[in-house]
């Protein structure tokens, strides 16, 4: 039996990174600041990879990803606050509940919204993010603007194994979806939806599929976030949060899962390393965002490469 090389690499990467985290934690090589980064890195990987499915592979800009994260966070947190259970089943159920609730909302929002494309879709997802925020602010069982607190910390760094598994599942599911027949259909919608439609691909069905999967994992990530921090407020999940996820996706490379993972790790750890420059963080993000697009999309890169290659040729000709 021939084993796919890709699978070996993936399994190795998973095992090694888990071993590395365990080693670092057990040996006490990480101080408290860095330990506190573990779970946020996991959460950001999940958010970035799930947004990448919608933005990178489906090609639609969703500016409401933080909205789905908030739904998952609230659903999961409300569950743990109201149902007494041992820690492990409780967090597992909270994650599932968070994910499913977010997916249901993703479906309800997606069915009407995904008839739109491009700019309009981006704005409507933004609008939904804001609607979710103001509804959470107005409802009484979510405790309004004060938010929920004293959420059991069932997903903090001591429970890193659960979070690690959740991250791995997220990445594997999305990578497999992208590699599958459905995934290729999703990509074809991005590349040319008219052509896709004319060869019989049900465009809106695949849009909703990608959107719902994205929402599900954002919800799971939200639930983990809630059980790591312990306090959630509607303002935690604002437009800035959505943009931060988008920055990770764009910097990592749209349509590259590996890129999203690496960018999520770097961009989560960077603010902690560059503590003094915290005011500059969002400024740098925005500059990076603009620069990245300008370099990749304006033909600048091609020109540079061309010059580089022709220079080489000239040298070879001498």
């Amino acid at each position: 039996m021939k084993v796919d090389k890709k699978i070996i690499v993936r399994v190795l990467a998973i095992v090694l990174s888990y071993a590395l985290i365990t080693f670092l934690l057990r040996m006490g090589l990480l101080n408290r600041q860095y330990t506190a980064l573990l779970i946020p890195i996991g959460v950001n990987i999940m958010l970035a990879v799930s947004l990448n499915l919608v933005t990178g592979f489906l090609g639609e800009l969703s500016l409401g990803h933080a909205g789905f994260m908030s739904i998952g966070a609230y659903a999961g947190a409300l569950f743990s606050l109201h149902v007494e259970m041992p820690a492990l089943p409780s967090i597992l159920l909270a994650m599932v509940i968070g994910g499913v609730t977010a997916a249901v909302f993703g479906f309800l929002i997606g069915v009407p919204v995904l008839r739109l494309r491009g700019d309009y879709l981006a704005i409507v997802t933004l609008a939904f993010g804001e609607i979710i925020k103001s509804v959470l602010n107005a409802l009484s069982f979510t405790n309004g603007a004060r938010g929920l607190s004293k959420i059991p910390l069932n997903a903090n760094y001591e429970h890193y194994t659960i979070v690690f598994i959740a991250v791995v599942i997220t990445v594997l599911v999305i990578a497999n979806v992208v590699d599958s027949r459905h995934g290729r259909a999703v990509c074809s919608v991005r590349d040319n939806y008219i052509a896709a439609e004319s060869v019989g691909i049900h465009v809106s069905r695949f849009k909703i599929l990608a959107f719902v999967i994205g929402a599900f994992f954002a919800g799971v990530a939200g639930a983990i976030y809630a059980h790591n921090v312990g306090i959630i407020k509607p303002t935690t999940f604002d437009y800035n949060q959505s943009i931060e996820i988008l920055v990770i996706v764009v910097l990592g490379g749209m349509g590259s899962i590996k890129g999203s993972i690496i960018a999520a790790i770097i961009l989560t750890a960077l603010p902690e390393v560059l503590r003094g420059a915290d005011d500059m963080r969002m400024l740098l993000y925005s500059i990076a965002l603009i620069a990245m697009i300008l370099i990749n999309q304006s033909g600048f890169k091609e020109k540079l490469l061309e010059r580089f290659h022709s220079g080489k040729k000239q040298k070879a000709g001498e």
């Binding site: 933005t55 090609g59 800009l61 500016l63 491009g118 700019d119 981006a122 943009i243 988008l246 764009v250 749209m254 969002m282 400024l283 993000y285 925005s286 500059i287 965002l289 603009i290 697009i293 300008l294 990749n296 999309q297 304006s298 033909g299 600048f300």
Partner: peptide, 23 residues
């Protein structure tokens, strides 16, 4: 520079500019 780029790229740049001005 992005006149010929896909709309998604322009939109992301515009968001970047908005963020830049705010920050």
């Amino acid at each position: 520079p992005l006149r010929k780029a896909p709309p998604l790229a322009v939109l992301i740049t515009a968001i970047g500019v908005s963020f830049l001005l705010q920050n």
